[in-house]
Write a protein that binds this DNA or RNA. Structure first.
Lengths: 273, 273
DNA sequence: CAAAGGGTTTGATGTGGATCAAGCTACCGC
DNA sequence: GCGGTAGCTTGATCCACATCAAACCCTTTG
């Protein structure tokens, strides 16, 4: 049961979980069932939470710290996403009771609520509103990845960086000064380039008014930067981030999808979001 | 109502739709409601079904022909998926009642069943089993895209082609001779390269026993090809394709998820499937 | 305070893949 | 059968990005 006392879960944490779009609409009873057996756990920085290929037994809810999701192949590694609180991750694997396709590693000290996968699947069966919320959440994730792929296949590295900076500005509602949330090395991997090349991409953006001092990036000429970046609502989600929870009920709603993939690497199966 | 007579929907088509994992588990009543107002439509080759940015009013079920999903930006274009029957597409947008992130175009003459989005959303609210099926379907799509991104960020073009061929072999259960399902020009875009480069990649695979004659590709030395391709169950889904429907209930289940994306291009929102 | 070490930057060089430009081949309609 | 057109291939060249190497900087630690 998810209440203060058990497993060290604090009432304030419960409130934060309830604030997630995934749980906001669920019946109170469902929330109780779904979180029965949940426990809060603390991890040091640089800890592997999950290795790709592992069976996934829990839905993870990141309450504090940062988590990196990455994939590896043939001694190469790439960052697929970096999560900040409050975020859930690994929902798709939980729904399908399948093994993880990506590894998860803490970047900082982290506080994570772990909800048993069985409980989630049971809750979905009992509460259509919750099942609907899961669908909406997954649909949003799916669309996020579509954006990601378009970003990578259609833009070069400098364009990706420029759009990343503009998106950061929109998310944090910062004027012309933006703070990078992660090490440049990780940012490079997320943007699909080497650290060396990220440096050079920043250098290339100087002529568009961008200057860098450590993690602080000053966008001195937004319109010049936008002229280069050509941000597009069908690739870049400029939903503002409000407070510590997600933007809106669903950032995808804020802006505005699809379903099913044959051929290409993934799914031989025939569904396309 | 979905029955022969109305809108030219044939009973045999209904059977094929019922065979989809998405509908297989739904209550009969739900199927009726969900398909009320559905209509079957025929399109010539090379017809735009949907333009990215358009509101999505229907769930599409491809019954015959091939459909290409693609994205554009700044005069560049890339193929994101190629669908073959029986496939649904655009489910994520339907669930969120959002605009399309990709365009859909027929490659051949196509036969498509169009189910109103309202009906799908209503059905989800009323039938938890159906909502569950939608979640599972979206989770599978999500995982397909994760595989896709890993494929693109971790492999070079020759490696992608080699794995594509091996996957085709597994899907069609063909021995050493594989038939390409689409024009090479489209395949190139799907694999993230130019047609010129696809030719060269095929040439490079000659030394690994691959020979090409039009759409017929002979894999003369599987182990040599595998040594180069290094297929990985966490990237390549080698689920066999059975009959005209999907592999299993869910190709992702056959082999084996996650939820929420911060940072990077897409989702400012915080969920990672 | 000095040494050590990790992250970042800068430069030199190599390579995968894009682009440009012909040719080639196969299908189609007259 | 012939000419046209579209897709595919091949070659030459160029450019984006990776790699290798070294210097730099900033933080940590004895």
């Amino acid at each position: 049961m998810l209440n203060s006392g058990d497993s060290g879960v604090r009432t304030s944490d419960i409130e934060r979980v309830k604030g997630l779009p995934l749980f906001a609409d669920a019946a109170p009873e469902t929330l109780r069932v779904a979180t029965a057996g949940a426990h809060l756990q603390r991890f040091p920085a640089n800890t592997m939470l999950l290795l790709e290929g592992d069976p996934v037994d829990f839905l993870y809810v990141l309450l504090d710290g940062q988590v990196e999701l990455h994939g590896t192949w043939n001694d190469r590694e790439t960052t697929l996403a970096i999560l900040r609180p409050v975020s859930t991750f690994i929902l798709a694997a939980v729904v399908l009771d399948a093994e993880a396709l990506m590894s998860a590693r803490t970047l900082d000290r982290c506080e994570i609520l772990m909800i048993p996968g069985d409980a989630i699947r049971t809750a979905m069966r009992l509460d259509p509103r919750f099942a609907m919320a899961v669908s909406r959440d997954l649909a949003g994730c799916y669309r996020g990845l579509v954006r990601n792929i378009k970003n990578h296949k259609l833009r070069n590295s400098t364009e990706r960086l420029a759009n990343y900076l503009l998106q950061l500005r929109a998310a944090d509602n910062s004027g012309g000064v933006v703070r990078l949330h992660h090490e440049k090395r990780i940012l490079a991997s997320l943007l699909g380039m080497t650290p060396e090349n990220l440096s050079r991409a920043f250098a290339a953006l100087q002529r568009h008014g961008v200057s860098v001092h450590g993690a602080v990036v000053t966008l001195g000429n937004i319109s010049a930067l936008e002229a280069l970046a050509k941000p597009d609502p069908l690739i870049d989600n400029h939903a503002p981030r409000v407070g510590d929870i997600i933007a809106d009920a669903d950032a995808e709603i804020w802006s505005s999808e699809w379903y099913k993939t044959t051929g290409q690497a993934g799914e031989t199966s025939k569904r396309h979001g």
